[in-house]
Design a protein around this nucleic acid. Structure first.
Lengths: 191, 191
DNA sequence: TACTTATTGTTAGTGCCCTAACTACCTGGA
DNA sequence: TCCAGGTAGTTAGGGCACTAACAATAAGTA
């Protein structure tokens, strides 16, 4: 009923590709695909939830950051860095958020006339109060069957996986790009 | 150097939110965020790799499915189902793939004049041969430090997590939608 | 057989995020 | 002091995947 997608990379399927490509490490691919699959499921689920709340993942992340920043606020550039997206993307997100009345742009109190300070409005805080409990509930439910030890194991293994990925990416993007300051895409982390 | 994004949901950050929202299950959220973070990293990495190869994740998945299908080919509707995307999306992907000469649409041999059969061309197969070894190499590298047992643990825990997610989604999307045949979004699974 | 209902692939239009290119502004060395 | 070079936010334009609606065709039923 809800098997996201059973067709795809089932065991026989992996065998098929393993025969054709000797670089394929079967058990590595199995774990990898399991993670990818859950990633997709996660993303889909979150997107659906946020959509029901008249919200998007990107806008949500901005609001989360601003809630945490409090009165001090954040500049668009800081937001972009924190949620790992392009500055231009933040402009768009803020336009939408501001149209809804959930954030405000103010002149930088520090006197840099290029810079802005963005703050959550009271309405914005209330919006988050209407979204976050359900969000956290979803997450708690998803992990309900996990023992404390399992949670730790999962976290640890995933982090190790992340390290493995990073290390590898680093080696060869290091050659090609070397110095590519403006950090591009990536995204999707929501407390 | 490559910490994707350290700013975001660090431990102190979670405490901050835990104070504000009692629904928040700290250890659940920690594991959840670890997965989400890796998901993002994964996606970003794959996207970067495919882009370098003049390819996109969606088009790649279509080609993978077609390679597996062989001479029999697949209809656009089947492709959509297999990779969990909308039929309209497949139309677009096939337009692009066809323009590159990697796939072809043929009249359905079964005689259903609504339906098409899509097949990989020889050039398409060669394209895959130029992409997949690197792709599998990436994956093998990422998992290189994992013992057989760790790979299994990771896979098992992730699958359990997936089940937890599904079970929960099912309960309340069951109420609202009930009968929403045309399966929408989701995506991102590539062997 | 005629009629209703379902399915196929496509088009049109939307949202989100990206890159590239700008203007305005700041900063640090000749 | 002046000016070369960096940084802030924005605009313009593109890619990809989605939904909604469509015409053509198939299948099920009275």
């Amino acid at each position: 009923m809800f098997p996201l997608n059973d067709h795809f990379p089932g065991y026989e399927s992996i065998q098929f590709f393993a025969k054709r490509y000797k670089e394929l490490d079967v058990s590595a691919l199995e774990s990898y695909l399991a993670v990818v699959r859950v990633a997709s499921q996660l993303n889909r689920g979150a997107e659906a939830y946020f959509q029901r709340m008249d919200m998007s993942q990107g806008r949500f992340m901005v609001m989360i950051m601003l809630l945490k920043a409090g009165e001090a606020g954040l500049s668009p550039a800081e937001i972009a860095q924190n949620i790992s997206c392009a500055r231009a993307t933040v402009t768009g997100l803020l336009d939408t958020l501001e149209a809804s009345g959930w954030t405000e742009r103010h002149a930088d109190p520090g006197g840099d006339r290029r810079s802005l300070t963005v703050r959550l409005t009271e309405a914005g805080r209330q919006k988050l109060d209407s979204i976050l409990p359900g969000h956290y509930h979803r997450i708690a439910q998803a992990m309900a069957e996990f023992s404390a030890e399992e949670r730790n194991q999962l976290k640890t293994l995933i982090q190790k996986f992340s390290l493995g990925l990073s290390a590898f990416e680093a080696t060869f993007s290091g050659l090609a790009e070397e110095k590519n300051s403006e950090q591009p895409h990536s995204k999707k982390e929501n407390p």
